[in-house]
Nucleic acid binder design. Structure first.
Lengths: 229, 229
DNA sequence: AGGGCTACGTAAAGGTTGGGTAAAGACAAA
DNA sequence: TTTGTCTTTACCCAACCTTTACGTAGCCCT
């Protein structure tokens, strides 16, 4: 299956160079030397991905992109003058997927084209929900839920994060500073007892077993006890 | 709601600089200082996108990427030494979605993160399951109608879109930002309560059951509860 | 053993935020 | 203009995270 690239670039020499290279790499290529032609081709549904120069004789490349985004979500890679940061940032904001500074390395262009096409191909496949089980607990990341013997635990968002991190490291100690960073997303400061509270609440919701599922390692952190096999 | 970035970078100073910047830009950030911790976090489904340094103290960044690609399609942006073309090309081949040369401009990192997340949001919009039934609801995409026990619901256009997206993902959580993008076709901005209103109206039209068919997942989004079989 | 220090457990209070929804406004089509 | 629809505004509440306060358990030292 050949991927169809639309090349919108007014510099004939560069355009033909790139086109030849892309064809050699197994793409099928459409060419347009100005914005108007480019738009017509792009909207004509016969390409998979667009390479768009910002500097065009008629319509500005960014306007082409805006027009395109109003109607489709065709992936677009911008060609910009090297170092022109404004164009790049604006380009992303308008909805470009990527940019390459000119003069561009054809190999890099191909690499980026393929990365983008691969991303799209993957995303169009349905993801498998890979829940993992730890004893009587089962994590369902898609639902952001953790089930205990099939019954969903009524966890808050933060409690879910904390338990999920502990489970991922079941059997080994997670240091408090790491748990804080990974589950709460911030640094552990002195006298911050927040984490202790979440652990306390979690233990309650898991049913205060003895010995506790979540073990305290004094001076270090916490550890989820490996469930009996 | 917030997009969760995982930052795998061993240089503490750079990592904290980027982390702070990303937090300011509205991302939630998890940090890992080495490949092993990074892998665990990435596989723990705790993030939406990964920023990965190639030079790491333990595992090589490219090996982290390979390992990751073996199990998920999590979007990855590589941090590479400037000018090291080999790493870049290999990175793309292994499955990176993008790369940024170091030392990197935080604004550009944000722009690229957002471009990639936007692309993914679009691509993951699953199409209507034709005529599928969900409990007492039946979707008729041709008519843009949804029937409840054979009786058509009096839905507005937007309400139809919202409900149909929720049904297509029945049982798992749809983030507000995705729901907005998929059903309303625009980005979710701060203080925009439009979506909440449509949900509220939908619940009313579906008959305010208990527990509600459309569950709220605080801080994240909504989920249509899987009907009893 | 006992004192003193520190880390942890947890109830309760405090404060912030996200979400529900009524009602008003904006807008477009008929 | 009227009507149907989407959006904004405003207010309120409940869920939740964090802090505070006090009690307890572990650990080291003499």
């Amino acid at each position: 299956m050949q991927n169809r690239v639309l090349l919108i670039e007014d510099d004939d020499e560069l355009r033909e160079l790139l086109a030849r290279y892309l064809v050699n790499q197994g793409f099928s290529v459409r060419e347009a030397a100005n914005g108007r032609d480019g738009l017509v081709l792009a909207l004509g549904q016969d390409c998979d991905i667009v390479v768009l120069d910002i500097m065009l004789p008629d319509i500005n490349g960014l306007d082409v992109l805006r027009e395109l985004r109003g109607r489709t979500h065709l992936p677009v890679i911008l060609l910009t003058a090297r170092g022109d940061e404004t164009d790049r940032i604006v380009g992303f904001e308008v909805g470009a997927d990527d940019y390459i500074p000119k003069p561009c390395n054809p190999r890099e262009l191909v690499a980026r084209l393929q990365a983008l096409l691969r991303r799209i191909a993957w995303d169009q496949k349905t993801e498998v929900a890979d829940g993992r089980a730890y004893g009587d607990l089962a994590v369902e990341p898609g639902q952001r839920r953790i089930y205990q013997n099939g019954v969903p635990l009524e966890l808050t968002g933060t409690e879910y994060e904390v338990l999920q991190v502990l489970l991922a490291h079941a059997g080994s100690v997670v240091r408090k500073t790491d748990l804080m960073q990974w589950a709460l997303g911030r640094r552990l400061e002195a006298y911050d007892r927040t984490l202790d509270m979440h652990i306390s609440n979690l233990r309650k919701k898991l049913g205060n077993d003895h010995p506790p599922r979540i073990e305290t390692v004094r001076g270090l952190g916490y550890s989820y006890r490996i469930p009996a096999p």
